[in-house]
Design a protein around this nucleic acid. Structure first.
Length: 369
DNA sequence: ACCATTTGACCGTG
DNA sequence: CACGGTCAAATGGT
């Protein structure tokens, strides 16, 4: 048993290391490509394919391991210590693992879609202003047995146009009506997700949530990431300042499908007036389609007057992290109208701002701290 | 007129 | 059969 586990772990590490290396190469390619006209798309594609394949293997191993681990480490002690990947939010008392975990393995069979649950605390904001960067269209509402509040069903706005099958369910918490539990299902295949960094927001109403990072802030980001990754809480609450949104990302199904997550936030240039306000964005990679999801919708640079950072976290738990942010930032983050037109700023520039080499802490030691 | 939301009906699953 | 999820007609807002 132990042997098996170690073997798998080694294999996993190999795959992930390889993935990291390939990602790095791809990054280099992209950087070169952006300057030279003769960009070798083919090479890039090959790299991407390799990366995807690598992660597929790694995930397969993880899934396999999870199967093994379940019976043996029922209490999660072993998994906890060895691999948060399989237990990102250890014993979260907030979660109702009963429902979620019960069918973990069953789910694999019936559920090709991934799910991710997020808790959002609503401040002054109402449900409608919950914005995760995607545009959703409500298609149903249902009273749920035993729940005080009805559950709202949303699907991607671009479902019909682009065949994007992402959906989410929003339900207010029984205990605290100010808390919304959002369950994401499926992944975005629409342009919102398909572009590495384009903000593809609906024309008006909806807003997107990311602020671009300045190049020189990369170091700062690195440092913060390094610090934060050490003390990453099993669960994290985020607050959307002016809107009063707090987001808590809980790892759920990623117990079986653990994917790296990105966390983009917009810290204030210099300590905010309200330091207690955090903003966040976390995007969890789903399935194996890395690139497809490698596209948290970015905030409109309309807030270009505000320096901001993008934090991403290639985490092991799928849990986002919070970062300080100013109220004004948050306002922008939550409500800044965004359009495709002003987003190109983020195009590929995003990668310029990221040093794959060091910023992608996709290293085994992190995967299994 | 177009688009998003609402809401009762319908359907699949356990 | 009950429940959760989805459909689609009706409704409302712009």
């Amino acid at each position: 048993m132990e042997e098996n586990f170690k073997c798998e772990q080694v294999g996993l590490i190999d795959e992930l290391m390889q993935g990291k290396e390939l990602a790095k190469q791809l990054c280099d390619h992209l950087l070169v490509s952006s300057s030279s006209s003769s960009s070798s798309h083919e090479t890039n594609e090959v790299l991407i394919e390799k990366i995807l394949s690598t992660y597929e293997k790694a995930l397969a191993m993880l899934n396999c391991k999870a199967d093994v681990g379940e019976s043996k480490a029922k209490n999660g002690s072993m998994m906890d210590s060895h691999c948060p990947l399989t237990n990102g939010s250890p014993k979260s008392e907030v979660l109702e693992p009963e429902v979620k975990n019960k069918n973990v393995f069953k789910k694999r069979k019936t559920m090709s879609k991934l799910t991710e649950q997020v808790k959002v605390r609503l401040g002054t904001a109402h449900e409608g202003s919950l914005d995760d960067g995607y545009s959703w269209r409500k298609y149903g509402q249902k009273d749920i047995l035993g729940a005080k509040f009805p559950r709202g069903y949303y699907r991607c706005t671009y479902r019909n146009v682009q065949g994007c099958l992402a959906t989410k369910q929003v339900q207010k918490s029984d205990e605290d009506p100010m808390i919304c539990e959002i369950t994401y299902k499926g992944r975005h295949t629409c342009s919102q997700a398909g572009h590495l960094n384009k903000t593809v927001a609906p024309p008006s109403k909806r807003k997107v949530n990311f602020l671009g990072a300045n190049k020189h802030q990369t170091h700062q980001i690195k440092n913060q990431i390094q610090q934060e990754k050490i003390e990453q809480p099993p669960e994290t609450f985020f607050t959307f300042g002016s809107s009063g949104l707090e987001v808590k990302i809980e790892d759920m199904d990623h117990k079986e499908d653990m994917f790296p997550s990105f966390c983009f936030s917009s810290p204030l240039k210099e300590g905010s007036e309200n330091g207690d306000n955090n903003s966040l964005f976390s995007y969890t990679m789903m399935e194996n389609n890395l690139m497809e999801n490698f596209s948290p919708t970015f905030i409109s640079p309309t807030s270009s007057d505000i320096e901001s950072n993008i934090f991403y976290h290639w985490g092991s738990t799928g849990i986002g992290q919070s970062v300080q942010s100013s109220e004004s930032d948050i306002t922008d983050i939550v409500s800044a109208p965004t359009s495709v037109t002003n987003s190109p700023i983020m195009d590929l520039d995003f990668f310029d701002k990221i040093d794959f080499d060091t910023d992608f802490p996709l290293i085994p030691s992190e995967l299994c701290t």
